[in-house]
């Protein structure tokens, strides 16, 4: 691969891997604290999938960049501004409804993203990986949509809580679909799919779930952004201090 192409693929893998790692991290925080024992199994299950996706993608990424010895160097030893995840995934969990709504937003987006990669991606290894990832991600979307419907339709209180969650997350949704030089170039080179198309599918699916849930889908515009350039929200530093604690405290050790 030519240098410019390699840089682009590396950047794309990081964006995907960081989204998955950070949402996996947040999801794993639920372990032992969920509303039912059944959900205490479901959420870690999803966290396992997400972190597993991140691991596989980091492995592909560090093959392209000799600066990073292995997947752990990428996951644990970058500086804050080197993480490329969207701001949506780093936000604190909030209540269970907020958590499943975010998961629904993200996994529905990722489901269509993986589907598109499965159809077309110039980086063969990623294309191959998307075949497995799309299955797990579809399941996350199904699981979370079921809870969005249940909670939206459930009681007055739960409907109100879900409406609050929609307002709370709304400013962060636009970034999933926002274009920049990377997205334009990667689409041109047949590496990543066009986000506009994914956005349309995403909106249709979210709308149909919200209808069943008696919830209103707000107008999605680009509001808060920065994650893709490494500009994160305040909460991200705390997340990293947990994530990186061991590797930073005991450098150059095997675990």
């Amino acid at each position: 691969m030519r240098k410019k192409m390699t840089d682009m693929v590396f950047e794309g893998l990081l964006r995907l891997a960081d989204d998955n790692l950070i949402l996996g991290h947040r999801t794993s925080e639920w372990c032992g604290h969920a509303p039912t024992l059944e959900e205490d199994l479901a959420l870690p299950n999803i966290a396992l999938d997400l972190i597993g996706h991140a691991q596989a993608l980091y492995i592909l990424a560090c093959e392209l960049n000799p600066k990073y010895a292995n997947e752990d160097a990428l996951a644990f030893l970058r500086l804050e501004h080197e993480y490329k995840n969207v701001l949506l995934v780093e936000q604190e969990n909030g209540h269970f409804g907020n958590t499943v709504l975010r998961l629904f937003y993200f996994s529905t987006f990722m489901k269509y993203f993986w589907e598109a990669l499965k159809e077309q991606c110039c980086f063969e290894k990623l294309k191959k990986f998307s075949e497995k990832a799309v299955l797990e991600t579809s399941y996350h979307s199904q699981y979370s949509s079921q809870w969005v419907i249940t909670l939206g339709d459930g009681t007055e209180e739960s409907n109100r809580k879900m409406s609050d969650a929609i307002i709370n997350l709304e400013p962060f949704v636009g970034e999933l679909f926002s274009e920049d030089n990377f997205t334009r170039e990667s689409f041109q080179k047949d590496f990543f799919p066009e986000l506009g198309l994914i956005c349309e599918k995403w909106k249709a699916e979210v709308q149909s779930v919200f209808t069943k849930a008696n919830l209103d889908l707000p107008n999605i515009t680009l509001k808060k952004r920065g994650g893709r350039n490494g500009e994160h929200t305040e909460v991200f530093g705390y997340l990293l201090s947990d994530l990186q604690y061991m590797q930073r405290t005991f450098p150059n050790s095997s675990w």
Partner: peptide, 26 residues
């Protein structure tokens, strides 16, 4: 220790293990 596990491999094993415990309780 899930959020602070030192490597991805350890994090995944620990998550799987703690999740098993929920299953066993169930």
């Amino acid at each position: 220790w899930i959020t602070r596990a030192p490597t991805l491999k350890r994090k995944l094993s620990l998550l799987a293990k703690v999740q098993d415990e929920a299953g066993h309780g169930l």
